[in-house]
Design a protein around this nucleic acid. Sequence first.
DNA 1: GCAATAACTTGACACTGTCAAGATAGCTCC
DNA 2: GGAGCTATCTTGACAGTGTCAAGTTATTGC
Lengths: 203, 203
Amino acid sequence: MTSTTSPRRKRDGSLRNDLIDAGVALLRERGADGLSLRECASKAGASHAAPGYHFKNLMGLSTAIAARGYRLFCEAMTQRLSEAGEDSFSRLEAICHGYLDYASAYPELFLFIFSGQKFNEGDEEFDTAARKAYGILRETCAPLVPAGSDPADLEILVWSLVHGYAHLTMTRKKENPELGLTWPELGSLMKHLERALQSRGSV
Amino acid sequence: MTSTTSPRRKRDGSLRNDLIDAGVALLRERGADGLSLRECASKAGASHAAPGYHFKNLMGLSTAIAARGYRLFCEAMTQRLSEAGEDSFSRLEAICHGYLDYASAYPELFLFIFSGQKFNEGDEEFDTAARKAYGILRETCAPLVPAGSDPADLEILVWSLVHGYAHLTMTRKKENPELGLTWPELGSLMKHLERALQSRGSV
DNA sequence: GCAATAACTTGACACTGTCAAGATAGCTCC
DNA sequence: GGAGCTATCTTGACAGTGTCAAGTTATTGC
């Protein structure tokens, strides 16, 4: 007569997506440490072990969240690229702006995917999203790579710069909302550094 | 008659340091996720709640480990600085090399202190160590800061670059031990980028 | 030697990830 | 339209975790 289970959700497969939504919300509310399978389940109105069915374990859920993070990251960059001209450097600046757009629109995902935390690298959804993000960088950098040098050198240079810059911008914005650096200033800084290198004759 | 407690350690206050040692070892063996108060206690031969006395909570232990990480980080940079000449750029290169030395000598601490994880910012030991590290960067950058610009701009530029570079070097070393970029290559890359900026007339 | 305090230990509780087993909703097939 | 089948969950259990309160003992100060 009385059923022993108390199903609250429709079994339509929508839970998987709801759990990712809940995870992103948790990241935003409590930071990376606050992410928990049980809390996500509760937030999505499911039982405590429900996430296990879709993601197997915590790393699985984290990986799914990171995959979404990378997809949104790609969207931010391609959006800026679509507005940019054809000049190679304009396009490089465009993806950098996309990077900053992403960091300010989804700070919790930005911090999460670049936290250094390990994800399931076998996961196809995650791999394609992450690879696509890096592919955008690679293609945008390609025309600027000096002949005979490893493309990865320029890629990591740009990646490091914009990442450190975004990180700084985020933390500074928190302390001082109206303050903000702009890319041209970075360009002039690099020019300055290069002058220092030249005067030293080491290049 | 029979004692209810079973003390195994001398109560000489050495536990605090042993717990930090255990924590560093755990980080090395199992990564940041493997760090746990109870495991550290067990590794140090103490009871499960002993760390609570010295560090109050997990963040307290993490902060103490990070403080040690920053101290070793400072040592690596000052070591290289002591061997460098007086030229401002040589000194900048020296702290970058120190950064790389540190990353390869203590990869687990390197990853830990720069993981983006929050530490107890009120902790005096941690604050002074972290501030000292940033002070070394600031002082070394100071002579190279363009007149009228915010010193923080150059600092974050250098910091981002060397961090991204160290990160790349670490991951590459794992795949391809004999491969390694050198700083001069980075310098020439920046020169190249600056030329691109100039030809565009945007600087 | 005695009291005070520092440096722990023990025990408990709530919470977590993860697994095994059960239940049921919705589909397919006859 | 009923019988099964399977995807999609729920329940229950267990070991591990952080953290607190209370007890115990070694060491110190007098």
